[in-house]
Design a protein around this nucleic acid. Sequence first.
DNA 1: TTCAAATGCATAAGAAATTTATGTATATAT
DNA 2: ATATATACATAAATTTCTTATGCATTTGAA
Lengths: 112, 112
Amino acid sequence: MGNQKLFKGSLQTIILKLLEENDKMYGYEITQKVKELTRGELNITEGALYPALHKLEAEGLLEVEVAKVGNRLRKYYKLTESGAKETVNKLAEMQEFLKTMQYLVNPKLSLE
Amino acid sequence: MGNQKLFKGSLQTIILKLLEENDKMYGYEITQKVKELTRGELNITEGALYPALHKLEAEGLLEVEVAKVGNRLRKYYKLTESGAKETVNKLAEMQEFLKTMQYLVNPKLSLE
DNA sequence: TTCAAATGCATAAGAAATTTATGTATATAT
DNA sequence: ATATATACATAAATTTCTTATGCATTTGAA
């Protein structure tokens, strides 16, 4: 770890991408999935995740469905129609960013 | 543009990388070089750049040499010894970040 | 059976990095 | 003349995240 700071600004995109793949997920599930996919390199904190989810919901990109599992609450999030569109945009921007950054820090490894 | 926010957290690394390649550069030159290298995609603002340079200097990673060109002031920055070491670390972290992020948003394009 | 760790949500205070807005001054091109 | 480019700088506001805290249920290990 140590480079968590580089992920600043990419949380929304990560959430949207996961929901594009998985139809619906709840908060805690997202943190675990990200930890798993990044082999522990990125640990999303609750203090970052929940406000981000609330913001995406407020913007109309996500919708919530509350479920009760056993005696415990879960809030499942899924993409709205406009959320799906915005996901495409954000992923394209991210792809562009990654390409640009790759070129900046290592022109030799950039295939363009 | 629009995705300027994704560059959040990577400014220090960009500066260090440029100074690794170019020996010495002054602030305005850095902004122009970055604009050129990214084909206008990343425009570093002065409000971000100068405080960043001052911080790197305060941390002992950069040293300054003031020059007078015509009637105008220029502050050339170059890597210190410890700055050169830190650059290697930061670039490795950036490379790791890019790989992880690429895998997250597009597993198919990730070659590992 | 009890107690720590995991699951699951949430918010508030503080920190860090950046944008936006200003300010100052010289040089160049129209 | 006058706008644009060059060249530095800082302050206020904003965004995004970390750290700290709080509450409650479930599971696993001692």
